[in-house]
Amino acid sequence: MPATMSLTVRTARDELERINAAVDRLAEQDDWPPDLVFRVRLVLEEWNLNVMDHGHDDDTHEIDIAMSCDDDAVTIEIIDGGKPFDPLHDTPAPDLTSAVGERRVGGLGVHFMRELMDEVRYKRESGKNHLKLVTRKVR
């Protein structure tokens, strides 16, 4: 029986706590190593705060999050009805090289997703953003 989790949160930043608690429960149930917990938390925070801050005008909308685990990998699916946002095409290249004085942080969240996940897929369907992320349990 594969471990699964699904959760609907509002587009409010304080929902991050519920998202993290859900990750912790699944991690415990499926016995994840600490580095896996870290990267799943990270991509969920980066994407969901992005959706909350930029995809919606207020905190009354919903984001659906589902996760499932098999022996080798964790699959994460996130759906929201906000503004279209394709992380593979709509984000500026992150600034990884400027000196301190000129350095900017924009675009790092999506960069983390692309670097830390084995698969990042996006589609816009029925007026919603569908993001699918897959990470192997052991890298």
């Binding site: 870290f38 990270l42 983390f112």
Partner: peptide, 19 residues
């Protein structure tokens, strides 16, 4: 135990201020 881009942003602002 954990840092995200939000935490990195704080470190960057701090590094700039110190400089």
């Amino acid at each position: 135990s954990y840092i995200s881009s939000a935490g990195l942003r704080v470190l960057l602002v701090t590094a700039k201020a110190l400089q």
